[in-house]
Write a protein that binds this DNA or RNA. Structure first.
Lengths: 232, 232
DNA sequence: ACCTGAACACCGTTCAAGT
DNA sequence: ACCTGAACACCGTTCAAGT
């Protein structure tokens, strides 16, 4: 790995181009793809760029600033569906496409949920989404409905990210539930256990179950919003 | 603070009682209440107990083990509503009461969502909740509906925790949105901005808005589940 | 302006040695 | 069995000094 390797000679005197903030974020984005947003250090970025750690602070700022830079870049990759789509289609597309992007950069979904519209690249999506809800008849509740749908989908992606960092957690959970299948004293868990038993436990089965639950969550949250329209 | 203070003499020779795993988790729970689950170090726990850092590993294990111990203890404080309650009431109570407990221990909600039924103290709640859904007529879908409702509520609490660690984020978000109130080129954000303008920005206003959005999310998620019953 | 090189005050984990 | 005391391999941040 050689993540920590001291350098010897000045970049300028060696004829190398100067480091820029953009190159630092580039390296941080790539490290985030490989190891997640909490899986790299400022010193590892510096090593990749062949400079000393202080250079990162000089061009970008502290770790927090680097993380925000990465977040903004990743969010900008999420496509914004056309505003002519029916509201349920628009949100389903945005959520499913957003999940695809976010899953490649573990930890960014959590950040997105926490900082929300403070990430500039999220603004076009928010603007279009609220307009779509206005057109659907949500009126003054459009902003809160947007937040509700957005949060429900992407906090779930954040949890999926976290679970990948507990590689055994998924299998443990399945096994723990399955163990209750014949427990008469806990009939609720017994039902969950029977369900768990019928499902596969190898990685691709788990991935398919995750996607299935994500899509279930998306549809339920859309139903929850739709109930606001029909009860008028 | 004196979080790092070396000790001098043997506990045994000083007549002090031996450290136990329970006392270590006690100290960690208290530190979590004060600073959150990511706000303390193994060395700070050791300092509070007047021992060397290695003692924590000896009695409990690594940091992960201490965190799971804290999580289990905090979850055990969440009351389980009576199973005779109508399903919406049962879930509303569990979610609102759970939020009250979890908010006192920042970071635990996130853990709970990630490890789920691997925390032993969560099992009685899961068992009762699934039974309540079975009684309500959700049939084989009871387990997935339980997961959906649980996740929606407590991932939101996890985000609320995170936002408290970005003390400016909340106000920045409000100000950022309000700034779009007269932006004709972004009409969706303009609507959100107008809404943001009418709301207070001091801490207790923010707390009230957080609670309001939490309750909104809870009702919408319950509506989303209820739609599964009415469409049969 | 940009970068080096080092220092500072922290981490979690491990482990031989003492009691 | 329990704890000391130290070592190890890391962190993020800061900053005087060089170019």
């Amino acid at each position: 790995m050689a993540d920590t390797a001291p350098r010897r000679r000045s970049r300028a005197s060696a004829g190398l181009p100067p480091i820029t903030a953009e190159k630092i974020i580039d390296a941080a984005v790539e490290l985030t793809r490989e190891r997640g947003l909490d899986g790299w250090s400022i010193r590892q970025i510096a090593t990749r760029l062949d400079v000393w750690p202080g250079v990162v602070a000089h061009h970008v700022g502290d770790r927090e600033a680097v993380v925000m830079g990465v977040t903004d870049r990743v969010i900008s990759r999420i496509p914004v569906p056309g505003e002519d789509r029916p509201w349920r289609d628009w949100f389903r597309s945005m959520m499913v496409d957003g999940r695809e992007v976010l899953r490649d950069y573990p930890g960014v979904a959590r950040r997105l949920c926490v900082v929300g519209p403070n990430v500039p690249s999220a603004l076009p999506t928010i603007d279009t989404g609220i307009r779509v809800l206005l057109a659907a008849g949500f009126g003054a509740e459009a902003p809160v409905v947007y937040r509700y749908l957005f949060n429900t989908a992407f906090t779930l992606v954040a949890v999926e990210d976290d679970r990948r960092h507990f590689p055994t957690a998924r299998a443990d959970m399945g096994r723990a539930m399955a163990a209750f299948a014949e427990d008469d004293s806990l009939p609720g868990l017994a039902v969950a256990g029977s369900t768990a038993r019928t499902r596969g436990t190898d990685p691709e089965d788990i991935a398919a179950q995750e996607t299935e639950f994500f899509l279930f969550t998306v549809e339920r949250s859309l139903d929850g919003a739709e109930a606001m329209l029909t009860s008028r």
